[in-house]
Every structure is written in C-alpha cells, then in structure tokens.
C-alpha cells in the first residue's frame, strides 16, 4: 500500500493504517536525525519542530498527494515524534542504556525527556488517557507540545479553526494539570 492509499484508509478510520503512517514517519524521523548528526553540521541543534516539518514534507513528496495532505502528515509525524521522545525518556529512565540513548541522536530536542524522564512519561501516560476520552483535544496537545507546531498549522492539519485549537489546548491543559497533580499514575 502506498502512502496516499494509507492516508485514505487512515482517514476512513483504519487504525492499522494510522499506525503504519506513524511507523513510516517514525523511521523517517530516525533516519533524518541520524543523517544530520553524521554530517556533523555545526548547527546540529536538531529541534523536534524542524524534524516534524521536514518529515511531513518528505512524506508529502513521496506520496504525491496534493498539497493539503501535508497537514495530515504533520499529525502522524507529531505522533512519531512523541514516540521518539518517549522511547528516549524510557531509555533514559532506566538510565542504563546510554548506548541506546546515543543512537537516538536527539539530545538537543528532548531535554525534558532527558532531565525528567519520569515526569515526561507520566505526562505521556496522562495523554494516552486523554486520547481515550477525547482524541481531538489529545491530538492538539500532541502536535503542540510534542511536535511544537503552531496553532495555525494544527488548525490546518485538523481541518478546524485556530480558535478551536486554542480552546482545545486550554481545556486539555486543565485536564492534564489535574491528572498530574492528582498523581494518578503514581498516586499518593
């Protein structure tokens, strides 16, 4: 199945197609990050946002879907970015796999994942729960927080208005704040 087909399936609610798109984006992210590091560019401060943009553009190119497909790819790239960061934080948490962490080559982009992996993972868990309850708002958080995308970009990707994205963002934050403060994950 090529990318445009996948995209179509994903749009019609096929979670397997979605997972596949995330996987493609994930592979691409890793590849890109690795390449950039190997070229030893001086400005190798690889930001998550830059990577997500780059990957979306590449996917768009490969898939030959017309222009507005980019926004959708951005959503998958954002999920992939989250996966990258989470696996980084996970490796970091166990803290015994420096080698693995090195392989990710994304240190600059994930100080949060590095410095407070446990909290980072808790946030991730909370977001997973939100995804169950309210997928759209959770997706906004994923794109905004994990991929650093702008409100307008998210609005385009999710085919909604910037105002709605902003409101979703506020509501989701309240929910996450409550979850994290309750210490629901590691509770009491």
């Amino acid at each position: 199945m090529d990318l445009s087909e996948l995209l179509q399936h994903a749009k019609s609610g096929d979670s397997a197609a979605r997972a596949e798109l995330v996987r493609v984006a994930y592979d691409d992210l890793r590849k890109l990050a690795k390449k950039q590091m190997q070229e030893e560019r001086l400005d190798h401060t690889l930001t998550a946002t830059a990577l997500v943009h780059e990957v979306s553009a590449r996917l768009l190119e490969q898939s030959q879907v017309h222009f507005h497909g980019r926004g959708e790819f951005m959503a998958y790239a954002a999920t992939a970015m989250r996966n990258v960061l989470i696996s980084y934080a996970r490796a970091k948490r166990s803290d015994k796999r420096g080698g693995q962490a090195q392989k990710l080559q994304l240190q600059e982009a994930c100080l949060a994942a590095e410095e407070q992996p446990r909290e980072f993972l808790e946030l991730n868990d909370a977001l997973d729960r939100l995804m169950q309850i309210d997928p759209r708002r959770a997706q906004v958080v994923e794109m905004r927080y994990f991929a650093g995308l702008a409100i307008e970009e998210i609005a385009t990707a999710l085919e909604t208005s910037p105002a709605t994205v902003k409101r979703d963002w506020s509501v989701a934050k309240l929910w996450l704040a409550r979850e994290l403060n309750q210490g629901f994950v590691n509770g009491g």
Binding site: A48, E108, C110, A112, A113, E119, F120, R144, A147, K173
Partner: peptide, 25 residues
C-alpha cells in the same frame, strides 16, 4: 486549575520543547 497560566505546557516553537516537561511539572 484555571489560572495556572500559560506556563502549564510551555511551547517554545523555536527551540521545541527543550524545557517543556521540566516546566510543566
């Protein structure tokens, strides 16, 4: 939790989420 402000999930678009979780917590 309202009024916990915009700092809750800080997003710095230029440097991505460099400090994000730290600040979040």
């Amino acid at each position: 939790f309202e009024g916990t402000g915009e700092d809750l999930l800080p997003v710095d678009e230029s440097s991505a989420h460099a400090r994000l979780a730290t600040l979040l917590i």
